[in-house]
């Protein structure tokens, strides 16, 4: 019986190692011809980031859409800096509001990418291997023309942060749990997840995919930069850029100033 237990423990340990190793091996995912792609790739165009941010309040959680665009712009900025720092050239094109307003065709082209992205994510969810063969169904020609790049980097993400009320509630519940002799469990106060896929417009397929999830505050630009660096490291190489912490309260203050100004 004792030896059986030992074997069970060994097997469990091996299973955990395989799971962890398997997960580590399956990211980033690349297409079979990824080496050829990197040879051909000269200019990279990061597409406008799509990000969803939620605040976990004491009794509910709510989308914080008013923060979304600021966060997306920070991630866009980080991606731009990281591509510029890498061996690749950054596309000059800016997906600014004025550029979008002046170009209805471009907005239609951007819209078309949503269904294609949904298809890709559905296929990625089923993919266990680190080698992928996922066609990209939307047309990329117009975006490739505008950006002057055949290699488009799509970035999507989500983040959460806790409200003061939620933090107090968790603290109190943990205290009560301790008082009662139970084992308290505290969730992370915030997290940021980013996923990126590189799509080759010539091949019409996804050639690289990676995702990271870190215990970082999605409202802090320096933490978004660190998450972006971790995300793109396998594609663009290790970044030497130092995240700028001096702007960390820009988004938080903007939101809170607006709230206080209304009172």
């Amino acid at each position: 019986m004792v030896s059986l237990n030992r074997w069970v423990r060994h097997l469990a340990a091996i299973a955990v190692m395989l799971m962890v190793g398997g997960c580590a091996a399956s990211l980033p995912k690349t297409s079979k011809d990824f080496a050829d792609v990197t040879q051909e790739m000269k200019v990279v165009a990061p597409m406008p980031t799509t990000f969803a941010v939620k605040e976990d309040a004491a009794f509910s959680s709510q989308e914080m859409t008013q923060l979304t665009h600021d966060i997306e712009r920070e991630v866009d900025g980080a991606m731009g800096s990281l591509v510029r720092e890498s061996q690749y050239k950054l596309s000059d094109f800016q997906f600014s509001d004025s550029a979008l307003a002046a170009d209805a065709e471009l907005r239609t082209a951007i819209f078309e990418q949503h269904q294609a992205m949904a298809d890709v994510f559905a296929k990625l969810a089923r993919s266990k291997s680190s080698t992928i063969d996922i066609p990209y169904t939307a047309s990329l020609d117009l975006i490739a023309d505008r950006t002057g790049s055949d290699h488009l980097l799509f970035v999507t993400g989500q983040g959460t942060f806790q409200s003061t009320g939620a933090a107090v509630k968790e603290g109190v519940l943990a205290g009560v749990s301790l008082l009662m002799g139970g084992s308290p469990s505290m969730s992370d106060p915030y997290h940021t997840s980013l996923a990126a896929m590189l799509v080759d417009a010539n091949r019409g397929k996804v050639v690289w995919y990676n995702q990271v999830s870190l215990v970082h505050d999605p409202r802090r630009p320096s933490e978004l930069m660190i998450t972006s660096q971790a995300l793109t490291k396998p594609l663009l190489g290790k970044s030497k850029l130092t995240p700028d912490k001096s702007r960390d309260n820009v988004i938080i203050d903007k939101y809170h100033h607006k709230t206080t100004a209304k009172k």
């Binding site: 406008p48 799509t50 989308e63 914080m64 859409t65 008013q66 979304t68 665009h69 509001d97 979008l100 907005r107 239609t108 082209a109 951007i110 819209f111 078309e112 949503h114 607006k258 709230t259 209304k262 009172k263």
Partner: peptide, 23 residues
């Protein structure tokens, strides 16, 4: 008192997002 104004602000931000994403 501020909730309605926050909701309006969120609504405006969401409408902008939908526009930017081509919806």
């Amino acid at each position: 008192a501020n909730v309605q104004r926050d909701l309006v602000e969120k609504g405006r931000a969401e409408a902008d997002i939908l526009w930017r994403r081509g919806f």
